[in-house]
């Protein structure tokens, strides 16, 4: 059966007379400069910033669940389409799903929070997967460049290992290869 494509028609409504911005299935929005938001999050600290990201991701996951009751049956392409659409509506960047062996890597390109807001974006993605798929996954920030920001989604134990390898100077592809080898042995 063909999956329904993401349709953003009439999702965002600008009520100029009342001065409101409404997102379908969500609370009121506020259009603010991304740089100002990033400055605020950096000044708030890691814990508050991650909490903010989790709440934002949870809301996105709730909208996904409300739109697709059978969200767990979505294919990789379908989830990429709808999750990427919701993230794009929030202005967080363009989503790409990569599979490195058995590892799931999500990549965000063109995000205005890329410079300094990597952990906020990781928290957003964690909140989405937790709310939409009921999975507690840790998002490990692998690397960021002009190609985008890559996040690896593994368990808490595997995340600590990968973060240790990355801190030891290993490149993120080497860390992924090492994770695969340790799991296979």
């Amino acid at each position: 059966m063909a999956e329904q494509r993401f349709d953003p028609t009439h999702v965002v409504h600008f009520d100029v007379a009342r001065g409101h911005i409404e997102l379908q299935g969500a609370s009121s929005r506020v259009l603010i400069p991304a740089s100002s938001l990033l400055d605020l999050l950096l000044a708030a600290g890691d814990d508050l910033a991650r909490d903010f990201g989790h709440r934002l991701g949870t809301e996105i996951g709730r909208r996904l669940s409300a739109r697709f009751p059978h969200l767990k049956e979505l294919s990789i392409a379908g989830m990429t389409d709808h999750l990427g659409g919701e993230l794009a509506l929030s202005g967080l960047g363009a989503l790409t799903v990569e599979r490195w062996g058995q590892a799931l890597v999500l990549k965000l390109k063109g995000s205005p929070l890329a410079e300094g807001g990597e952990y906020v974006l990781a928290a957003v993605l964690e909140g989405v997967l937790q709310r939409a798929l009921a999975r507690d996954a840790r998002a490990v920030f692998l690397a960021g460049d002009d190609d985008g920001l890559r996040f690896l989604f593994v368990s808490e134990g595997a995340a600590q290992k990968v973060e240790g390898w990355l801190a030891g100077g290993a490149s993120w592809p080497d860390a992924l290869a090492l994770l695969q080898q340790r799991s296979a042995s």
Binding site: I76, Q102, A103, A137, F153, A158, Q180, R182
Partner: peptide
């Protein structure tokens, strides 16, 4: 990463996530 035969592509995104969570 994958010197041997490739693993079958998961049917759903949730299966891919579960496989990734099983790593390590």
């Amino acid at each position: 990463v994958s010197p041997s035969a490739p693993a079958p592509l998961p049917a759903t995104f949730l299966e891919l996530l579960d496989a990734s969570l099983a790593l390590g």
